[in-house]
Amino acid sequence: MCLAVPMKIKKKKGNIATVSLGGVERNIDISLVENVRVGDYVIVHAGFAIQKLRKSDAKATLKLLNEISNETLG
């Protein structure tokens, strides 16, 4: 039930934003997250954005995974 997926903000107006996921657009409530901008990725749970997805941290984790791969598999 705690399922939440990243979606990209396309448009916003007040507390409502339009997001897209796999080509399908829908409206979500963004009042639980500060400073949401068009182009941001947000994590959406039951019609609400609950957090922004931070690209820099995603990249940092992937860098770590890469290091593990290189170290293990050479």
């Binding site: 990243p6 995603a58 984790t61 992937l62 791969s69 598999l73």
Partner: peptide
Amino acid sequence: MKHLDEFRNSKHITAIVSQI
């Protein structure tokens, strides 16, 4: 986001499983 696919990279899977 394209690089999210990287979280399913089979090379990473093999490496982590071997470390585990």
